[in-house]
């Protein structure tokens, strides 16, 4: 074998390895899509079919009727979480990066630790606290709770980004007579656009995918996001896998959209999570 042939064979081997691992990684998603087109009878049978077997759209009809409202709820919660994260995190990230405050070290440490706190700990207490201040079963309550996933992360990512802004930019604005707020809102935020988008994408996905707070601070009648609805539906009709899988397809649509539209923000956010600061 010549050197060229060997490297070509090696490359082929790599491609094969990559394809094999992708098959394993992506099979569950593929299975969901296939199942969403199967009839209940097929899915209840003892045989699993790897390709669609008697395709039907019935599941989607069921789901569009039953789950459309829940999808909208999740959309509101996701957008709400993204907005909350921005309102709280953008100014805070900026202040922690660019203002010489004594509390910075303490606050950044607190944010790092906050990321570690398990949600169930927060959920148990928030249930009682929300009960007390009448925030159970409400969008504001759920969004405030979902913010616990997104906000510490968002502040740290934005802080890391704002470090990279040259101080001269802000100084120039101040020399021109801009107030601190004007400097922030007209100069800093537009410059930080890509970090802001990363944070928004993550916060949206956090709010969209949340289940633990939906389970604890909602009782599923007034406000019921798609994750909770799927869980309830599965409890009610655990044999109706077709409809469950069609709901699942809808529940992962935003993730798929984000993957196509905002891939680079997701990748940078994922890795930024490890340095956070």
């Amino acid at each position: 074998m010549t050197h060229l042939q060997r490297s070509r064979a090696l490359r082929l081997l790599c491609t094969l390895g990559a394809v094999a691992s992708l098959v394993v990684v992506l099979f569950p998603v593929y299975a969901v899509v296939v199942a969403s087109f199967e009839t209940t009878l097929t899915l209840l049978g003892n045989t699993y079919y790897f390709v669609p077997h008697g395709a039907t759209l019935a599941n989607y009809q069921v789901v569009l009727q039953a789950q459309a409202g829940h999808l909208l709820t999740s959309l509101i919660v996701g957008v709400g979480t993204a907005v909350l994260a921005l309102v709280v995190a953008v100014p805070a990230g900026y202040a922690l990066a660019k203002y010489p405050l004594r509390a910075t070290v303490v606050l950044v440490s607190a944010l790092l630790v906050a990321q570690i706190v398990p949600s169930i700990v927060i959920a148990t207490s928030l249930f009682k606290v929300f009960h007390w201040i009448h925030l159970l079963n409400s969008y504001p309550g759920l969004i405030l709770a979902d913010g616990t996933y997104a906000i510490p992360f968002a502040i740290l990512v934005l802080r890391a980004f704002f470090f990279s802004l040259p101080n001269e930019v802000m100084q120039a604005a101040r020399v021109d007579g801009a107030t601190e707020w004007q400097t922030f809102s007209r100069i800093v935020v537009p410059l930080g656009r890509s970090a802001v988008i990363t944070v928004m994408v993550f916060a949206f996905l956090n709010g969209w995918g949340d289940f633990i707070f939906a389970l604890t601070v909602l009782n599923g009648t007034t406000v019921e996001p798609i994750t909770l609805a799927i869980y309830t539906y599965l409890g009610n009709f655990s044999q109706d896998w077709g409809a469950v899988m069609a709901s699942v397809v809808f529940a992962i649509v935003p993730a798929a959209v984000m993957l196509v539209v905002a891939q680079r923000y997701i990748a940078s956010g994922l890795t930024a999570g490890s340095v956070v600061g």
Partner: peptide, 14 residues
């Protein structure tokens, strides 16, 4: 990175 984007509850259901 697809699996990471699927909501955790949904992963459980799948």
């Amino acid at each position: 990175i697809v699996p990471w984007l699927v909501p955790l509850l949904v992963t459980g259901v799948i």
